[in-house]
Design a protein around this nucleic acid. Structure first.
Lengths: 339, 339
DNA sequence: CGGGCGACGTTATACGTAACACTTCCGGCG
DNA sequence: CGCCGGAAGTGTTACGTATAACGTCGCCCG
């Protein structure tokens, strides 16, 4: 980990390349046309790459007096609406060389005053969802302390992980459906190669493998209402035996499935039992209300942050998955006919 | 605006208070017990307040070598789930003197690589939703260039505004319902004192005032499914004439109203027409699909950012509200009986 | 043949803050 | 009377970067 070694500065790069710090600044700042020889510039770039040099943005901002960064204040994160606002704003900003930082105005507690403290400068550490895995390559570029959320404990690059006990949630769902008498399952899975979804599939299939006479078929869909609807329609109108229970990877997928099932003139739960996972507000907005597994998102966030603070402090984060709870509602019932 | 005047530094405060810069740092850093006299400390604090001094965090971070700021990487903003994660993380972080900055990993385009550029240092400007009005007092504390989203063009402290043409959207809804034959309206309004909601109420009532024989009653509810459900239930079970059309301030409120109406055994749209505003994914997830007004959130974000960039550039942002579009779906129909 | 200019760099400085090391003043104590 | 120690500050430096100002050297042109 090289805990004690400090980050290389432009002067270190200069020493390594045998030039002055100013030359490094010119080359890396792309201001060297006609000021530095091509061969020298190349030497500097090599040295920078070699040392893994990253400019200290605090210093740069101090020197420059500006940051090309803008703050977007939004009422809360719950609204899809402001997600779109962010996307559009970030796109335009990026085209102009600006970055956007989000400040969700506090709902309830939170850092009430001084949003600017929140929106400051370089980072001491990173808390990352495994679903944002593509961004992690960039993150590994820096040597920042990292804690992963809902990620494979083995194979997280040595980073600490904080996980919800998703496996137990899936076990609870499966046992609930088995107890009702279901034997033919359809698994509506997210088409994202993330550990948190892999766990769902693994747990469902291994659990069912212990019960004779069961069958499960898996279909994949993007995590959108439309995507789930299409996938469900395709699966249910095809040939083969009809499932009596539909296990969805999350509540949003379940909502899409609801639409597909409704369009086909079928009834939930009489013709088909449906389960979700998350327990979003959505789960009780749809009819019938969804049987799902409640994840305590706030606790998850708290535990994640505590782990990161521990790492920053040189301590070892406490282990232990966060428990989850099955919530039975109107979308599950015994199958109408025994096959 | 004092465009040219630069921000006061700790040395300016020192000069004004007749002490050294070091003393200012001690006093404002709360490290002065036994090092500076109480009367002197008070003089420094007064001078700082007088000049509106704010420490330059880029300089502080450079000096300190850390930022007490942490990055939370989330898959996207659309999920309520990660809103909870943020809330919990931000609470714990605040308790430890840490701030949290959000980096929503890009969906589609966006600033793909280098999230750290996005998460950098102090701010050049602010883009603020009027719904986050409470945070604005803090924002006005600094002299940052500001652009307001969906805010009263008059009375925004001289800041530029970028607005959706909400008034026209409400007009389209009202005309649609009037055209179907509705005369008795119920208005389910958000209980937030924000301009964007005030516009809805104003436009609905003034439009109906021009049509003889119409009546409208307004009830307020928090923007949650539960809150809307309770308010709707209370309004519909009370005495008085029954409305045939329910106009909701947004799609989420409409979803809560759906639940209330369903629980009462009434049918949409036969017994009651319902409208929303936003056109979230939610609007087509519920049954029947919701007649609502589509807001182009991304365009809104783009226009807002363009305006802010213009201000930063010393230019005057282009004026003009962003058009919106009525989307008619299954939740509206002619009233069953003419009163 | 001299001087100027372009190529190729370097030296020095400033951004605003925090903190270490140092000075001065004064009261008290042996 | 001498000196010690705490209170009340001040002088100075360093954090890492970008850039303006300044050399140096060879070559070409008048």
């Amino acid at each position: 980990m090289a805990r004690g070694s400090t980050r290389p500065t432009s002067r270190d790069v200069a020493r390594a390349a045998g030039v002055s710090q100013a030359a490094v600044s010119l080359v890396l700042g792309d201001k060297w046309r006609g000021r530095v020889a091509e061969t020298t510039a190349e030497r500097v770039r090599e040295a920078a790459l070699e040392l893994g040099y990253r400019p200290n943005l605090a210093a740069r901002n101090l020197r420059l007096g500006h940051t090309r960064t803008v703050l977007l204040v939004v009422p809360a994160l719950t609204t899809e609406f402001f997600a779109g606002v962010y996307t559009g704003a970030a796109r335009v900003a990026a085209e102009h060389g600006f970055g956007v930082v989000l400040y969700p105005s506090p709902e309830g507690i939170g850092p009430a005053r001084d949003p600017f403290h929140s929106a400051q400068a370089a980072l001491d550490g990173v808390l990352a969802s495994s679903m944002a895995a593509d961004a992690l390559t960039a993150i590994r570029g820096d040597q920042l302390p990292l804690v992963m959320l809902d990620s494979d404990p083995r194979g997280s690059l040595g980073a600490a992980t904080v996980n919800l006990d998703i496996a137990d949630g899936v076990r609870q769902i499966t046992d609930h459906l088995l107890g009702l008498g279901h034997r033919h399952f359809l698994h509506l899975a997210a088409d994202i190669p993330s550990w948190t979804f892999a766990v769902r599939a693994h747990e469902l299939t291994t659990r069912l493998a212990t019960v004779p006479g069961t069958a499960v078929r898996t279909i994949h869909a993007p995590i959108t209402i439309e995507g789930a609807q299409q996938a469900t329609t395709a699966a249910l109108t095809g040939p083969g035996p009809h499932p009596t229970a539909l296990v969805c990877d999350d509540d949003k997928l379940a909502t899409g499935a609801y639409k597909a099932i409704r369009r086909m003139g079928l009834h939930i739960p009489d013709d088909l039992s449906v389960t979700g996972l998350d327990d979003l507000a959505l789960a009780t907005a749809i009819d019938p209300e969804l049987t799902t597994v409640r994840l305590d998102a706030e606790l998850f966030g708290e535990r994640g942050m505590q782990a990161l603070l521990a790492v920053l402090d040189g301590r070892t984060p406490t282990k232990g998955d966060i428990p989850v709870q099955l919530v039975v509602r109107g979308s599950t019932a015994p199958p109408r006919t025994r096959p």
